[in-house]
Nucleic acid binder design. Structure first.
Length: 758
DNA sequence: AGCACGCCGACT
DNA sequence: GTCGGCGTGCTC
């Protein structure tokens, strides 16, 4: 018997192994331990007895870990589809769907604990002891000898009392905490008064303490909008046919309530729901809501869980004890038997795209999963991606609109501050404009809260020499170093390769003494807010601030509890969280991201500004947003202020059509790495030529050009951009182009449907 | 990705 | 004379 196995090696396709006669035939999805070169690895069975022996001589598998399967076959197939679509290796893709720890060779690794419970004999003895010798055993009296075998010492009686008052028994690990010595417990066990049994414990990630939903008053009644949406979506879910619905609802319109009710409906038909959220930080809130409705039959899956927690959750899902899975990107591969509903919340969010191989977009994989399962796929967003909205108006997706906020709360009022005028009036060093300063101070005084957003980390964005006009650059990457910290603690850091150095006192190029810092990031904004509002309690939320485990949760709950007045941060503060005391959102520079030459720059800016403005005024007080910009007339900014999605879509669509970008064409971004610039460009040129020859006229190949980051981590990079309508053709052309150049294949990064070409 | 084999510098 | 640098090449 021959099997085809996916092994966790990026460049390898399926490999064929033999199954010895004394081993049962492995099912698809089972893990097998196989020899690979001089190593031994764990792979997944993908096909049975299929292919003719390919390549060198076939080796037998070492061990079959799961005679009854592990990964469900349809999830294996989904991973295969993903690998193919995104031009990635099968093995590295299947590695995502594996339960953690599965690389190890143990078939199962459940944590268990010993539980002690009082037996019937123990209860009888305790009663007899109480009635037989009331109060006769003083604290100092020596323990009575157990002459008849049922008499109890003081310690034993205390232990039995403690156990009898614990209905579920007491875990062995907690005995000491209840004043029960281990030798006492052991004696009681020998007497038969106490029973010990092993209990499997699922390490429960919920127990880690989730942020409670702040305004949770049980079953809320639905708005008219919500009822209409729910009625239509329920009809689709009940049809048991595949359908995608785009739920376009302004922030605060109550999309989550609809997910909850749809999940309940789907559960009543015996199927499960899969709910994807863009960020780990959003899972606890979503999970808490679902737990209220579904109790323990809710699992979460994301990379922030410990291996043990993930493993337990995975096993519970696969075992069929779960109705709802909530998770981030990789949860799209959760081993649910029969999903009837797949929700992708904030579907436009870039976090759904994995920025390393396999470069899949979980939103799109979710749609394929829904298609194969005959499920309803609900994409929710206040600012849908251009692609999804296009499908919705073309009728390919069902379009559901929620344009009223619950309780009819008004959207924030938005003010745009033209920073050119501010600079003219206040000087070019202005970080916070007068209107924003005043608005923050006012919030602090009124004990309300403010969010201040700047999508750029660090203190200063560059170190600049006034003498030679040079800037401090990373030695490994073609970017300038960003200053972190102030005073003595200043360091210049590369945001791409993590290179760091102290900020020099003289220019390393010309030895000139006139080094200046230019530009600013979140650290500088934090300092400015502290300077302007001395009494204010200010926190900062960005990747640097939450590097420590638990720091994110602590910051968010401090802000939620009102222990902070102002929270400064990157886009991390713009996502999801429902802060009810926030009445001001300030955007320090709406232009970060607009200046870059990326085809999605306007879309991202519009989404970010719209989302962040929606953060203000979720409580009963009206919110205000102040947006600082150098381009007050830019359509992304103008239309985000008016929260006019439809107008933005039309405007942006013109640009995409004119420049031939998605959703009008599909694109594949190709980066070729090499030790020298010439080699990178040369290889990219050869690749481009081969693709052009292989597909005459069917697609456009742009490039080669130096990649936007021409040098990264010490390597040079050249870029190609493929545009066409047929993704399959593009993938195949690339595949054949590198087929006889394995070295080149290894240095080539292929990104199908990139979110950014930078 | 690992982990081999493989061909040239500074050490016991 | 060896130990070891990491440059190519293979893994059913």
């Amino acid at each position: 018997l021959l099997i085809r196995v996916a092994v966790p090696v990026p460049q390898l396709d399926l490999l064929t192994y033999g199954v010895p006669d004394d081993v049962p035939p492995p099912p698809v999805g089972a893990r097998v331990v196989v020899p690979l070169g001089s190593r031994v690895v764990t792979g997944i069975v993908v096909e049975i007895a299929a292919a003719e022996p390919g390549g060198p001589r076939i080796k037998p598998i070492r061990q079959l870990l799961d005679p009854h399967g592990c990964v469900p076959p349809d999830v294996v197939a989904l991973a295969q589809w993903t690998a193919d679509y995104y031009a990635a290796g099968v093995g590295e893709t299947i590695a995502i769907v594996l339960p953690p720890n599965a690389r190890g060779t143990r078939a199962d690794a459940h944590k268990t604990r010993r539980i002690l419970t009082i037996t019937a004999a123990g209860a009888t003895a305790l009663t007899a002891d109480r009635t037989g010798a009331p109060g006769s055993a003083g604290p100092d009296e020596p323990a009575r000898a157990a002459s008849d075998g049922s008499a109890l010492t003081v310690k034993q009686r205390e232990a039995l009392e403690a156990l009898s008052s614990a209905p579920g028994g007491v875990p062995a690990s907690e005995l000491a905490g209840r004043g029960i010595a281990p030798e006492v417990a052991a004696r009681l066990v020998r007497k038969g008064f106490v029973a010990v049994h092993q209990e499997r414990v699922d390490r429960d990630p919920f127990a880690a303490g989730s942020l409670a939903p702040s305004e949770q008053d049980g079953r809320r009644s639905l708005t008219a909008d919500q009822s209409r949406a729910l009625a239509r979506l329920s009809g689709l879910a009940e049809s048991r046919r595949f359908q995608v619905a785009l739920m376009h609802g302004v922030t605060g319109s109550g999309k989550t309530e609809i997910y909850l009710r749809l999940a309940a409906l789907v559960r009543s038909t015996g199927r499960q729901a899969l709910v994807l959220v863009p960020e780990i930080a959003l899972t606890p809130v979503m999970a808490a809501l679902f737990r209220q409705a579904f109790g323990g039959r809710v699992a979460i899956q994301h990379s922030g869980l410990s291996d043990g927690e993930r493993h337990d959750q995975w096993q519970r899902i696969r075992g069929g004890g779960i109705d709802v899975v909530i998770g981030t990107r990789s949860a799209v591969f959760a081993p649910l038997a029969n999903p009837g509903l797949v929700v992708v919340d904030e579907e436009h969010d870039g976090s759904y795209k994995q920025e390393e191989s396999p470069r899949y977009n979980a939103r799109d994989v979710a749609i394929v999963r829904g298609q194969r399962a005959g499920a309803l796929v609900v994409l929710g967003s206040a600012t849908p991606s251009m692609e999804s909205y296009q499908h919705a108006i073309s009728g390919k997706y069902e379009r559901i609109v929620l344009d009223r906020r619950v309780l009819d709360r008004p959207l924030a009022s938005v003010t745009v501050v033209n920073m050119r005028e501010e600079f003219a009036a206040e000087g070019p060093d202005q970080v916070l404009s007068r209107p924003l300063q005043d608005a923050i101070a006012e919030r602090v005084q009124r004990r309300e809260q403010a969010l201040v957003l700047l999508n750029r980390r660090g203190f200063a964005t560059a170190v600049f020499c006034r003498q030679c006009a040079g800037t401090l650059e990373c030695p490994n990457c073609s970017v300038s170093l960003v200053v972190h910290g102030e005073g003595r603690a200043r360091r210049a850091c590369c945001h791409y390769c993590n290179y760091q150095m102290p900020v020099p006192r003289v220019c390393p190029l010309c030895a000139g003494p006139y080094l200046e810092q230019a530009g600013f990031g979140t650290e500088r904004v934090e300092a400015e807010v502290r300077r302007l509002c001395p009494g204010a309690r200010v926190g900062r939320l960005d990747r640097d601030a939450v590097r420590r485990r638990g720091a994110l949760r602590a910051l968010l709950s401090d802000f939620q509890d009102g222990a902070l007045d102002v929270l400064v941060g990157t886009q991390m503060i713009a996502k999801g969280h429902d802060f009810h005391r926030v009445t001001l959102v300030g955007v320090v520079s709406a232009d970060v991201g607009l200046g870059v030459a990326d085809f999605r720059a306007s879309e991202r800016t519009f989404q970010l500004l719209t989302q962040v403005a929606g953060r203000a005024g979720r409580g009963d007080r009206r919110g205000e947003a102040i947006i600082q910009t150098l381009y007050p007339g830019h359509y992304s900014i103008q239309l985000a202020c008016r929260q006019d999605y439809a107008a933005f879509f039309e405007r942006e669509l013109q640009f995409r059509r004119a420049m031939a970008y998605p959703p009008f064409v599909s694109i594949v971004n190709v980066i070729v790495r090499a030790p020298t610039f010439a080699a990178a460009v040369g290889d990219a040129a050869e690749l481009a030529e081969r693709v052009r020859i292989g597909t005459p006229g069917a697609l456009h190949v742009l490039g080669p050009a130096p990649a936007p980051l021409a040098r990264l981590k010490g390597e040079y990079r050249a870029q190609l951009l493929l545009k066409g309508r047929n993704r399959k053709l593009m993938r195949e052309a690339l595949r054949t182009a590198v087929a006889d150049r394995p070295d080149l294949a290894r240095r080539t990064v292929i990104d199908v449907d990139p979110l950014t070409v930078l």
